[in-house]
Nucleic acid binder design. Structure first.
Length: 604
RNA sequence: CGGGAUGUAGCGCAGCUUGGUAGCGCGCCUGCUUUGGGAGCAGGAUGCCGGAGGUUCAAAUCCUCUCAUCCCGACCA
């Protein structure tokens, strides 16, 4: 085994590569852990691979401890399976993320972005009886997703390593137990990897299902916003978060009246002109949804003027309505721009002055466009009295309006409001929501019977009835987790790996390789340490001491041993990477000392 | 896909406005000196100037098309 730096592929960069934006990406490139091969495609170089194996091993141990069984599923998947589950089109067309290909026999195949279809097929073939349940299979493998915009190195690659697990149950209770076990296992994995994290309520996204939790590594560069309360009782992805909105102010208007309000196409301008609070305004937001059968539906959302629409919640509400319009899912949800409006509007819309009752005659007759607006009213406006809203005429608003007097209250009352930092919490209004940024490294959720029903994966229960398997699904981004660790732990000199996932525990830096004594002690310690199970590399390069120290800091090995000037007292220097604290230790005590330090840092 | 930007030596960049012998720093190679925080001196190698077409006596530079990469928005571990 080569662990001498003079013989390793060891190339560090002095400057930040232009392609990297965030610290962890820059550092992994500079320190020689990864190289970009194509957009969102990276080579994991020897140091990186060791880190990934450490993370994988922690994941594996925690999974095995719950009774889950490791397996390995194919990455090439026949399109038939995806057609059975109904996901082939949504995953390959439009903004789909699956790489699809046709082989020489004209068979259609997909490169696995996830494995519900494959695992459900296995379950369908092999699970017959409730006696075989519950069952939990998992794998650690490269996944392929044609991300629209790969970003930040390993954070959002088109090829990445993931642990995905799928559990099968006879009943909800059993599913919930495994879900709880996974919550614990995931917490253990992240704790053992040395990360600061938070488990949050989440939206279950395109995969479907309910009862969903994400594990967020807290870091400024995180792509997700997390809202939480300081009492620790609530934490959610902003996409999913709920809260109590600020109370609405009492409207100053007492009678219904139409007012001329020129140039007030925004709430802010309107409130300034009318001297009213945004909480008294009913804002009417127009969306355009396209279902997977090509049907376009115009959506009008009424929401309080001081609030914003949460598009994820809106998407979920509209997906519930999909059947009504002959679709299964939504391909796109956008605020229609002027160019888009021309495609369906019969006449110019009074933008900025739309009222909740804007007429359906604005929609031109077209087979591909639903002839009526879908009208959704957010909870925040249901109780408003004497409110302000548009007059369906440019330059005019109405004031003192009331539901079921001037305007009919839409039937569909929904929560599509975006929760915000500073809002009061639902579980305890004394608590306000705080915001943090996070990197999603894990996601666990209760799938239910979505796939088992679609693919006919059933078992026979004690009563002899044939029932669809109840499923759960649990993912960890292994390569993402590794980079997230760097994002959370670095300084101006480089990476500071948590000991548990560092590629090596220790590095022996020989300041002067021409000095026979320094070399001799270095070599001796190198063998002793590795023999004692302390993973150690030896920097025996013919470089100046400064170069070696800089490189050791950059690659982030937790402990550096220097066989330098302290040798005259029979000692070496040991420097802790995280703190740069150094102490001199007798050569004979190095192994036992490090063994103890490392054991303290690696939690089980 | 829409918006913005960039492609010049292994890496980071200048040169392009105003066309005329391809440059700088780092790294790399050789030698000497140095040797505890990215050394000094001397010498050296390295380029399809992203690709294709055009304009011109002449193109890294001007024009057209293309490809790739990065950044900002919708997707996700």
């Amino acid at each position: 085994m080569t662990m001498r730096l003079s013989q390793m592929l060891f190339v560090t960069l002095r400057e930040d590569p232009a392609e990297a934006e965030i610290p962890s990406h820059k550092l992994l490139l500079r320190a020689g852990y990864i190289r970009r091969i194509g957009s969102g495609i990276y080579a994991y170089l020897p140091l990186m691979w060791r880190v990934l194996q450490k993370v994988s091993q922690i994941v594996r141990e925690e999974m095995n401890a719950t009774g889950a069984q490791e397996c390995l599923l194919p990455q090439l998947q026949p399109s038939e399976l995806w057609k059975e589950s109904g996901r082939w089109d949504t995953y390959t067309k439009a903004e789909g993320i699956m790489f699809a290909l046709t082989d020489r026999q004209k068979r259609e195949l997909g490169l696995g972005p996830t494995h519900e279809e494959v695992i459900t097929t296995v379950a369908k073939d092999m699970i017959r009886s409730y006696r075989q349940l519950p069952l939990h299979l998992y794998q650690i493998q490269t996944k392929f997703r044609d991300e629209i915009r790969p970003r930040f190195g390993l954070m959002r690659g088109r090829e990445f390593i993931m642990k995905d697990g799928y559990s099968f149950h006879a009943d909800e209770e059993s599913l919930k137990k495994t879900f709880q076990d996974m919550h614990q296992a995931y917490s253990n994995m992240l704790r053992r990897s040395g990360l600061a994290f938070r488990a949050v309520d989440a939206d279950s996204g395109a995969i479907g299902g309910s009862g969903s939790q994400e594990f967020m590594v807290l870091a400024e560069a995180g792509e997700d916003e997390v809202l939480y309360t300081e009492d620790g009782k609530y934490a959610a992805n902003v996409e999913k978060a709920v809260s109590l909105p600020a109370d609405a102010e009492t409207s100053a208007f007492t009678s219904f009246e139409k007012k001329e309000t020129p140039g007030t196409e925004t709430i802010e301008k309107l409130c300034k002109l009318l001297k009213c609070s945004p909480t008294q305004v009913v804002k009417n937001v127009l969306y355009q949804a396209v279902y997977d059968n090509g049907m376009t539906v115009l959506v009008l959302v009424n929401i309080r003027g001081d609030q914003e629409v949460n598009e994820v919640k809106l998407l979920n509400e509209l997906t519930k309505l999909a059947e009504k319009y002959g679709g299964k899912t939504i391909l796109s949800l956008t605020v229609p721009d002027p160019e888009n409006q021309e495609k369906w509007a019969a006449k110019a819309l009074p933008l900025g002055y739309i009222a909740p009752d804007i007429g359906d005659e604005y929609i031109a007759a077209n087979k591909q466009v639903n002839s009526k607006f879908v009208r959704l009213v957010d909870k925040t406006v249901v109780e408003l009295k004497n409110f302000v809203t548009g007059a369906n005429e440019s330059g005019y608003h109405v004031v003192g309006a009331n539901w079921n007097s001037e305007f009919k209250l839409p039937e569909l009352v929904v929560d599509v409001r975006k929760a915000r930092p500073g809002d009061r919490a639902q579980h305890n209004p004394e608590q306000t929501l705080k915001s943090a940024r996070g990197i999603e490294v894990g996601h666990i959720f209760q799938l239910g019977t979505k796939y088992s029903k679609a693919m006919g994966a059933t078992y026979t229960n004690e009563q002899g009835e044939e029932i669809p398997l109840i499923m759960g699904c649990y993912g960890v981004g292994v390569s993402r987790l590794a980079q997230a660790a760097v994002e959370q732990s670095y300084d101006k000199d480089g990476i500071i790996w948590p000991v548990a996932i560092a590629p090596y525990h220790a590095i022996i830096s020989i300041p002067n390789v021409a000095d026979a004594q320094q070399m001799e002690v270095g070599e001796k310690l190198y063998h002793q340490l590795n023999q004692a199970g302390i993973e150690t590399i030896l920097d025996d390069r013919n470089e100046r001491a400064g170069v070696k120290f800089k490189d050791a800091d950059l690659i982030g090995i937790p402990y550096r041993i220097v066989t330098g000037r302290s040798l005259k007292d029979g000692k070496v220097e040991i420097v802790e990477r995280a703190t740069h604290q150094s102490q001199e230790i007798a050569i004979d005590d190095v192994v036992s000392t490090l063994k103890q330090w490392i054991a303290e840092k690696i939690q089980k």
